[in-house]
Design a protein around this nucleic acid. Structure first.
Length: 403
DNA sequence: TCTGGGGTCCTAGGACCC
DNA sequence: TCTGGGGTCCTAGGACCC
């Protein structure tokens, strides 16, 4: 009965509160300037003068995060930098320092794990915690333990976080948004109708923009609107799996345990070009990028001790359509040349007449390096070993032997 | 002036096997 | 000459999340 789960979200760059600041972009000249100027300054002590302003930003990046002052202008995560610059040209723009973010992320998670061992990783800045068997985890509905976690994180990292505590992960996640930033919300089962049902459907973790539109067409706008529907009606409209899940979610029901260990399913690298590239006209540049991506994926696999046997590519055209192709080979690999060769076969099966804005390489069907028997050494991957469905390349201009 | 990068999971059709 | 049903694997695309 007294089971409580917490969803914890770390807030990055809180020390810039009060100033409109956006973090994001990634790799432009502006980033270089900032990186050089402030290389020695640790997160938490960033000065607030002489930073480049968003209005001077050029490039294709998106906002990773923004201070609350910047959000007042409508700027937010995942927004394109150019659009953000129009909304808030005076904002200071900072680059993302991924190494630093990862360092803080590890510190954040290890701090929590010392207090409550059952922690589920949900990305750099988010975790679920199972409070159920933690001594004192039930006091004040979990609020006492949540305060302890928050305090420990602040002492260790100087960062604040919001915590939601509830009878399950789904509701805890929603509760964590009630009191941002640096808040704690405890939500009891009997409060679901009063506090969850009035919320818009998008607040459910798992209902995204597409489902929101479909729900709106059915005149369903709040979580309560969904809860008021018959389960079977939702199943008719959204399918057996999604419809039934939606009904459960609207009633705040969720049985998923906190999962502390999980094996990766795939690893990938992708990059958006500074300008759109054409397979023929920009062949050399594209080829170099392609090789580089394969090398990086191979290094990632090797560093983490994994091998995979499904190798695929992803590309995004200038009109933003996405295409993927993949091929499963007979033996597991983490070899850059094998990956590159197999990915090259995939590339022959897509239309390359349009200009591209993104190219990616993925390795899936992973296994731990040690768990796989040594396969035929140096075995050539490719068409002859590929399984039955390898297709003929599509005829046309884009199928030249480019890679 | 468009929209990053790294993931997971689901669906659906066809091949293939028994 | 016609034709089952179940199960698994492969592939492509898409929704969603942080």
């Amino acid at each position: 009965m007294d089971a409580f789960f917490a969803s914890v979200e770390l807030l990055r760059y809180p020390q810039l509160k009060g100033l409109p600041v956006v973090i994001g972009g990634g790799r432009r000249k502006v980033d270089e300037i900032v990186r050089q100027s402030y290389a020695d300054i640790p997160l938490g002590e960033v000065p607030v003068v002489a930073f480049p302003l968003l209005k001077d930003y050029v490039g294709r990046g998106v906002i990773t995060t923004a201070t609350y002052a910047a959000r007042q202008f409508g700027v937010g995560s995942a927004m394109g930098m150019m659009k953000a610059a129009r909304l808030c040209p005076q904002a200071i723009v900072l680059p993302v320092d991924f190494d630093e973010v990862r360092r803080y992320s590890r510190l954040f998670k290890s701090t929590i794990a010392e207090i409550a061992p059952l922690v589920e990783d949900r990305g750099v800045d988010e975790v679920y915690i199972d409070f159920t068997d933690v001594p004192g985890g039930q006091r004040e509905g979990g609020r006492v333990l949540a305060r302890l976690v928050q305090k420990a994180i602040f002492e260790r990292t100087g960062l604040t976080c919001s915590i939601g505590v509830a009878p399950n992960k789904l509701v805890a996640k929603m509760a964590s948004e009630f009191n941002k930033p640096n808040g704690i919300s405890v939500l009891y089962e009997e409060e679901i109708q009063a506090r969850i049902w009035p919320l818009p459907v998008r607040k459910i973790n798992g209902i995204g923009p597409k489902a929101e539109v479909r729900l709106a067409k059915l005149h369903l706008h709040t979580i309560g609107d969904i809860a008021a529907q018959q389960r079977d009606w939702l199943v008719d409209n959204f399918g057996e799996s999604y419809g039934a899940w939606m009904h459960e979610a609207a009633w705040g029901r969720d049985e998923r345990p906190v999962v502390t260990e999980s094996e990766p399913v795939s690893m990938s690298r992708e990059t958006t070009f500074e300008r759109d590239l054409h397979a023929v006209r920009d062949r050399a540049e594209l080829g170099a990028i392609f090789t580089n991506l394969c090398t990086q994926v191979a290094q990632d696999l090797q560093r983490k001790g994994y091998v995979g046997k499904t190798i695929g590519i992803k590309l995004r055209y200038d009109d933003f359509r996405t295409a993927t192709r993949d091929l499963t080979i007979d033996s597991f690999t983490a070899d850059a040349r094998t990956i590159r060769q197999t990915a090259g076969l995939c590339l022959k099966r897509v239309d390359l007449s349009r200009r591209l804005r993104l190219l990616g390489v993925r390795v899936g069907k992973l296994a731990r390096e040690g768990s796989v028997q040594a396969q035929r050494a140096g075995a050539a991957p490719g068409a002859e070993s590929a399984s039955h469905q390898a297709r003929e390349p599509v005829a046309g201009e884009g199928t030249l032997e480019l890679f």
